[in-house]
């Protein structure tokens, strides 16, 4: 299957905001649903809230279509709005939250991942080492690593989504990778042959 490019999405966006074309709206929707859903799962396991937040941002797009601007990066725009919406919806739901930062600190790299039914995978030393090394990273660091390495976003995109500078974004990745590598190497030095 052909991978959709950023340019396809930008074009669909352009057509949608100028004409309200339903086809291009649904193209944008289907191209990003999975990404938003999987990112959402890292913050909460409440699938209903994730779906609601996705719904809400797309309802917003329909409602505010005429006031929307051209965006150069649809993916980053949607992720940024989704993240904001999700935090809002999560806060609304948990009435007992005292902290404003509650949701961000809940980011967990291995949340919502398919449990492997093959036990031998759990014996994979590298996998275990990475899971363990991830615990040495803050939620924020995990979030950035996730956007960079799992979602394959660029530093520019990540800095846009998280509203931090490209430079601090890069530094965070650099630092996290160092931390992870040190802890992974400690755990795996005697098992190098297992990586093949």
């Amino acid at each position: 299957m052909k991978k959709t490019t950023d340019i396809d999405n930008r074009d669909a966006w352009k057509i949608f905001i100028s004409t309200g074309c339903e086809k291009s709206f649904s193209v944008i929707y289907y191209n990003h649903f999975d990404l938003l859903y999987y990112v959402g799962l890292k913050y909460t396991s409440n699938r209903q809230i994730i779906e609601d937040s996705i719904q809400n941002i797309f309802i917003y797009l329909l409602k505010k279509r005429k006031n929307l601007n051209l965006v150069t990066n649809v993916k980053a725009y949607l992720l940024k709005s989704f993240r904001r919406q999700l935090f809002l919806d999560l806060k609304k739901q948990s009435r007992f939250s005292f902290s404003d930062q509650l949701t961000e600190t809940q980011f967990n790299y291995f949340n919502g991942t398919e449990q492997s039914i093959f036990e031998k995978e759990e014996l994979n030393i590298l996998k275990r080492a990475i899971k363990k090394s991830m615990k040495n990273l803050s939620a924020k660091q995990q979030e950035i690593i996730y956007l960079r390495y799992d979602c394959e976003l660029s530093y520019e995109e990540i800095s846009n989504i998280l509203e931090i500078s490209v430079d601090s974004c890069y530094k965070s990745v650099y630092r996290s990778i160092k931390i992870m590598k040190t802890s992974i190497e400690q755990m795996t030095t005697t098992h190098v042959d297992l990586f093949f």
């Binding site: 649903f33 999975d34 398919e114 590298l126 996730y146 390495y149 990586f195």
Partner: peptide, 28 residues
Amino acid sequence: LAIGILNELKTKKRHISIEQKEETLNAV
């Protein structure tokens, strides 16, 4: 090692059915 780490950082994802997406879009 680098390849291994990069591959492991890609988390396994549950399949989301097209019906679920359609339903959410309809709800929108």
